[in-house]
Amino acid sequence: MNETIVIILLCAMATYLTRAGGHLIMLQFGKVHHRVEAALSAVPVAILTALVAPSAFSGGLPGVVAMLVTGLICLRGSLLIAVAAGVATLLALRAMGM
Protein backbone atom coordinates (compact mmCIF):
# COMPACT_ATOMS: atom_id res chain seq x y z
CA MET A 1 0.00 0.00 0.00
CA ASN A 2 1.43 3.39 -0.90
CA GLU A 3 1.68 6.25 1.55
CA THR A 4 -1.20 8.22 0.06
CA ILE A 5 -3.63 5.37 0.67
CA VAL A 6 -2.35 4.89 4.22
CA ILE A 7 -2.92 8.60 4.93
CA ILE A 8 -6.41 8.50 3.41
CA LEU A 9 -7.44 5.46 5.47
CA LEU A 10 -6.03 6.90 8.71
CA CYS A 11 -7.91 10.17 8.07
CA ALA A 12 -11.05 8.13 7.40
CA MET A 13 -10.66 6.35 10.74
CA ALA A 14 -10.07 9.62 12.59
CA THR A 15 -13.21 11.07 10.99
CA TYR A 16 -15.35 8.03 11.78
CA LEU A 17 -14.10 8.17 15.37
CA THR A 18 -15.53 11.69 15.70
CA ARG A 19 -18.85 10.69 14.11
CA ALA A 20 -19.49 7.56 16.16
CA GLY A 21 -17.56 8.73 19.22
CA GLY A 22 -20.04 11.22 20.61
CA HIS A 23 -22.81 8.63 20.64
CA LEU A 24 -20.53 5.96 22.14
CA ILE A 25 -19.53 8.33 24.94
CA MET A 26 -23.19 9.09 25.64
CA LEU A 27 -23.98 5.36 25.85
CA GLN A 28 -21.56 5.10 28.78
CA PHE A 29 -23.88 7.28 30.81
CA GLY A 30 -27.36 6.08 31.54
CA LYS A 31 -29.36 9.10 32.60
CA VAL A 32 -27.50 12.31 31.83
CA HIS A 33 -27.54 15.45 33.95
CA HIS A 34 -30.04 18.09 32.86
CA ARG A 35 -27.20 20.52 32.10
CA VAL A 36 -25.59 18.02 29.72
CA GLU A 37 -29.00 17.44 28.16
CA ALA A 38 -29.43 21.22 27.70
CA ALA A 39 -25.96 21.56 26.20
CA LEU A 40 -26.68 18.77 23.70
CA SER A 41 -30.03 20.26 22.79
CA ALA A 42 -28.13 23.47 22.03
CA VAL A 43 -25.72 21.71 19.63
CA PRO A 44 -27.68 22.33 16.39
CA VAL A 45 -28.14 26.04 17.07
CA ALA A 46 -24.73 26.66 18.66
CA ILE A 47 -22.44 24.65 16.37
CA LEU A 48 -24.22 25.38 13.08
CA THR A 49 -24.34 29.08 13.95
CA ALA A 50 -20.63 29.02 14.77
CA LEU A 51 -19.97 27.22 11.49
CA VAL A 52 -21.59 29.90 9.33
CA ALA A 53 -21.08 33.09 11.39
CA PRO A 54 -17.65 34.01 9.94
CA SER A 55 -18.82 33.39 6.37
CA ALA A 56 -21.76 35.76 6.92
CA PHE A 57 -19.22 38.57 7.05
CA SER A 58 -16.85 37.18 4.43
CA GLY A 59 -18.96 38.41 1.52
CA GLY A 60 -19.25 42.05 2.56
CA LEU A 61 -22.61 43.83 2.63
CA PRO A 62 -24.37 41.55 0.07
CA GLY A 63 -23.57 38.53 2.25
CA VAL A 64 -24.85 40.14 5.44
CA VAL A 65 -28.08 41.32 3.77
CA ALA A 66 -28.62 37.91 2.15
CA MET A 67 -28.26 36.21 5.55
CA LEU A 68 -30.77 38.66 7.07
CA VAL A 69 -33.27 38.06 4.26
CA THR A 70 -33.03 34.27 4.60
CA GLY A 71 -33.20 34.44 8.39
CA LEU A 72 -36.28 36.68 8.41
CA ILE A 73 -38.19 34.66 5.81
CA CYS A 74 -37.40 31.47 7.72
CA LEU A 75 -39.21 32.82 10.78
CA ARG A 76 -42.45 32.53 8.79
CA GLY A 77 -42.01 30.82 5.43
CA SER A 78 -40.44 27.70 3.99
CA LEU A 79 -36.74 26.92 3.94
CA LEU A 80 -36.51 26.59 0.16
CA ILE A 81 -38.10 29.98 -0.48
CA ALA A 82 -35.93 31.58 2.18
CA VAL A 83 -32.70 30.21 0.70
CA ALA A 84 -33.75 31.15 -2.84
CA ALA A 85 -34.59 34.68 -1.71
CA GLY A 86 -31.23 34.94 0.05
CA VAL A 87 -29.32 33.86 -3.06
CA ALA A 88 -31.38 36.23 -5.24
CA THR A 89 -30.62 39.10 -2.86
CA LEU A 90 -26.93 38.25 -2.89
CA LEU A 91 -26.73 38.12 -6.69
CA ALA A 92 -28.78 41.31 -7.09
CA LEU A 93 -26.58 43.28 -4.69
CA ARG A 94 -23.42 41.93 -6.33
CA ALA A 95 -24.76 42.85 -9.76
CA MET A 96 -25.27 46.40 -8.48
CA GLY A 97 -21.60 46.40 -7.59
CA MET A 98 -21.96 46.41 -3.81
Binding site: P44, L75, V87
Partner: peptide, 15 residues
Protein backbone atom coordinates in the same frame (compact mmCIF):
# COMPACT_ATOMS: atom_id res chain seq x y z
CA UNK B 1 -20.34 30.35 -2.12
CA UNK B 2 -23.31 31.41 0.03
CA UNK B 3 -25.73 28.57 -0.70
CA UNK B 4 -24.60 26.34 2.17
CA UNK B 5 -24.29 29.12 4.76
CA UNK B 6 -27.81 30.27 3.84
CA UNK B 7 -29.14 26.71 4.03
CA UNK B 8 -27.59 26.16 7.46
CA UNK B 9 -28.94 29.49 8.65
CA UNK B 10 -32.40 28.47 7.45
CA UNK B 11 -32.20 25.18 9.34
CA UNK B 12 -30.95 26.95 12.47
CA UNK B 13 -33.99 29.25 12.36
CA UNK B 14 -36.14 26.11 12.38
CA UNK B 15 -34.99 25.50 15.97
Amino acid sequence: DFLLPLYFLGLVMGF
